[in-house]
Design a protein around this nucleic acid. Structure first.
Lengths: 351, 351
DNA sequence: TGCGGTCGTGTTATCGATAACAATGACATG
DNA sequence: CATGTCATTGTTATCGATAACACGACCGCA
C-alpha cells in the first residue's frame, strides 16, 4: 500500500480500523472518547487498539488539529526548589488534561527566552509558560497578536501578556523589611545577583529599600555578584560586606535561602555571630532550611500553589474561556533563628 | 482557499512559495539547506521567509519524516546538580544538531518511567534518554525491538538497551571504601534512600561493603530513609545512627553530598565532632560543598561530560551509525576535611 | 549534430490523523 | 404507509510539510 520504505512498521489507526472492520473515523472517535459511537464498537475498538499496542501519532493529530498538546515552559533554572516546585505544581494538572510540558532553562538570560520561544512555536504548542513579567518587547507583542495562551508565573503583573499568576515581589520585600524595622534593625544590606539578572529580586530589594527609607533609616548596601552560582554568590557577598567594613550592617537580606545559607557559612568563617552581631534573612523557605541547626528567617512563597492555579488558568484559556484568569497570591514571613524574634506574635514556625 | 476556520492565520510554506514565485518544494529545499537550489533563489527565499516571519510547522515536518526532532528524556529529579548537570551537558550538543529535549522526572519510580515512555513515543521522538540501567523489562524489549535510538545515562552497563554512557557505581563505591580503609577506618555505615529507590546508590553501597568485607572488617550498617527529600534523609539517618548507639560507626558514607551536608548538621546538633569522632563521605561533589567551612570528602562524577558524550553518541546513532557507542567514565576521589587525609598523595583538592 | 549527464525545479503521492458533511437504518408519529 | 428524527457510521477534503520521480535547459564531447 505504501511506497515508502517502512523500517519499524508502527501500528497506525488504519491497522486498528481494518482489524475492527470499521472506518478510520470510527476508530478515531472511539479512542478519543468523542460522542456518537455505539458502546459495542467502542469497547471492541479499545480492545483491539490495546492488543495491537496502537499509539496515536501525535504529530499527525497536531497537524490536523492545527495545534499540538505541548505546553512550552521556560524557567531561569531548575536548580533549587523554586522553579522545580512550580513545575511540580503544574505538571499533574496539565498531564491529566492531556498536555505535555516541554521545558527549558534560560539562566536568567532574556535572549535565551526569545530563542526558546522561537524553538517551541514551530511545534504549535497549545500554550506557553514564562517566568515573570520581564520579556523581550517583540515577544510580548507577537504573543498578544497571535493570541497564544500564555501564562506568566512567579510574579504578578497588572498588565500581563495574557494570564499572570504570582506574588508581588516589591510588596514581599516591603513586608519583611517592615518586620525587621519593627524588630529594631536599622542598617540593611542586600546580597544577590548582579543587576539585570533577576528582576524579581531587584523588585524585592526596591521594596526593602522603600521600607527603610520610609522609616527614615539607612539605605541598603547591595552586594551583587556576577556568578550564577547562588551558593558562591551568598558566600562571597557576605564576606565582601564584612570586609568593606564601615558600619557593619545589622541585617542582611539575601536573594534566597540558599544564598542566606552560604552567607551563614561565611559569617561562621569570619567570626560574626548570628543573630547577635547581625541578622540574616533569606527568601522562599527552601527545603535546605529544614535541616539547618539554626533556621533562617525567611519568606514562604506558595510555589506549588502558583503552579497549580496557573496551570488551571492556562487550561481554561486554551479551552476558550475569556476574561481575567490571573491571581495574585500572598506570602508569609517565617521567623527563624537568624534574626531577633517578635514578642508573641502569630507568626513563626512551630517546634 | 481553506474551508476551515483560521483564527490566527499562520504563515505557511505556501505563503513563502507564492511570494517567491517558486514551488513549495523549492522553498522546502532552500530552507532546509538541501542541495539543488540555485544560490540566487536560495538567498531570495531566505529573505522572504524572514520577512514573512515564516516558521516551519514541525508537526507537519515530523509527520512527513515519520519521526520528530524531539528527544524524550527522563531523570529521577532535577533538584540537585546531578541530573541538572547531565542535562546541561547534553542540551547544547542536541540543540545544535536540531533536536529539542522534552524532559520529565520520575522521582525514582520505575512505573513513572514506563508512563513517560508511553507518553513520548506517540510523538515519534528521534531518540530517548533514560537514567541508569534498571528499567521495566517490557520497555527494554520494546525499545530494542523497535530500534529506538536510546541512551542510558549515569550508570555504565555492559548490556545496554542501545547506548550506555556512565560510571561504574559499584567500582566507585569500592574505590572510596578502599581509601577509607587505608586511612584506618573500620566501622562503616551508610545513609541513603530506602531500598528500591536508587539502584545506583545501592550498587555503590554494595561496592563499599565488598571492600570492607574483603579487608576483613565490619559490615556497613545502613540507614535508609523512605523520604524523597535528601536533606531530611541525611539528617534523620545520621541522627538515628547516633541514637542506635552500639559501636558508633567511625566512617559514614552518604548517598550524596547534600545528604552528607545535612548529616554534618546533625552531627553538630548531636555533638559529634567530624572528623575526630567519625568521618563523613559524600558523593558527586556538588556545588554546595564549595561553600562549606569544612569541605566534605567526596567522589567527583563527570556529569557534564557524560551528558555531552552521551548526546554525541545518541546523535550518531540517530544518524545511522551502527556499533558500540557506549562509554564508561572514571570518577575521582576528592579528600576534604570530614575524614582523615592520606599523607602526601596526588589526590585531594588544591587550595 | 546528437546524446548522455548535470543542474535546477516542478509534480504527484504520502505521512496519519481530524473536521465537516453525507448517508444509512431504526424507530416513532400521524 | 409516508415521513421526520435521531443515532451511527462512512466519505471527502485538509492539516503543512517531505520523498521520489519527472522534466526541461544547458553542457561537453565525440
Amino acid at each position: 500500500m505504501t511506497k515508502r520504505l517502512r523500517t519499524g512498521k508502527t501500528v497506525n489507526i488504519d491497522d486498528v480500523a481494518r482489524e475492527a472492520r470499521v472506518s478510520i473515523m470510527t476508530v478515531s472517535r472511539a479512542l478519543r472518547g468523542v460522542e456518537g459511537v455505539s458502546e459495542t464498537k467502542r469497547s471492541e475498538i479499545f480492545e483491539i487498539a490495546e492488543r495491537l499496542r496502537y499509539q496515536p501519532n501525535l504529530n499527525a493529530r497536531s497537524l490536523a488539529n492545527v495545534q499540538s498538546s505541548l505546553i512550552g515552559v521556560t524557567f531561569p533554572n531548575l536548580f533549587n526548589d523554586v522553579f522545580a516546585d512550580m513545575l511540580d505544581g503544574m505538571r499533574p494538572t496539565l498531564e491529566s488534561a492531556g498536555f505535555t510540558t516541554i521545558v527549558t532553562t534560560t539562566e536568567y538570560d532574556r535572549q535565551r527566552e526569545v530563542d526558546w520561544i522561537n524553538t517551541v512555536r514551530p511545534w504549535r504548542p497549545a500554550g506557553l509558560v514564562l517566568t515573570g513579567t520581564d520579556h523581550d518587547e517583540r515577544v510580548k507583542r507577537i504573543l498578544r497578536r497571535d493570541q497564544v495562551p500564555t501564562l506568566e508565573l512567579w510574579e504578578h503583573s497588572d498588565d500581563p501578556i495574557d494570564i499572570s499568576v504570582g506574588i508581588n515581589h516589591a510588596e514581599a520585600g516591603r513586608q519583611i523589611a517592615e518586620q525587621m524595622i519593627a524588630l529594631g534593625y536599622r542598617r540593611p544590606a542586600w546580597v544577590g545577583f548582579a543587576p539585570g539578572h533577576d528582576p524579581r529580586a531587584e523588585r524585592r530589594l526596591a521594596g526593602i529599600r522603600g521600607a527603610f527609607h520610609a522609616a527614615g533609616h539607612a539605605d541598603a548596601r547591595a552586594m551583587q555578584s556576577g556568578t550564577t552560582d547562588g551558593y558562591k554568590a551568598g558566600f562571597d557577598g557576605m564576606r565582601r560586606l564584612a570586609e568593606e567594613g564601615e558600619p557593619l550592617p545589622d541585617i542582611v537580606f539575601f536573594l534566597s535561602d540558599h544564598f542566606a545559607f552560604s552567607g551563614l557559612m561565611a559569617c561562621a568563617e569570619i567570626g560574626l555571630r548570628v543573630p547577635e552581631d547581625l541578622g540574616i534573612v533569606g527568601f522562599n523557605s527552601l527545603s535546605i532550611n529544614s535541616v539547618l541547626p539554626r533556621r533562617i528567617t525567611t519568606v514562604e512563597t506558595p510555589r506549588r500553589l502558583m503552579g497549580t492555579l496557573g496551570a488551571r488558568s492556562l487550561i481554561a484559556r486554551i479551552n476558550g474561556i475569556k476574561g481575567n484568569l490571573s491571581h495574585c497570591l500572598p506570602t508569609r514571613i517565617i521567623f527563624g533563628d537568624t534574626t531577633r524574634r517578635p514578642h508573641r506574635t502569630d507568626a513563626g514556625s512551630p517546634t
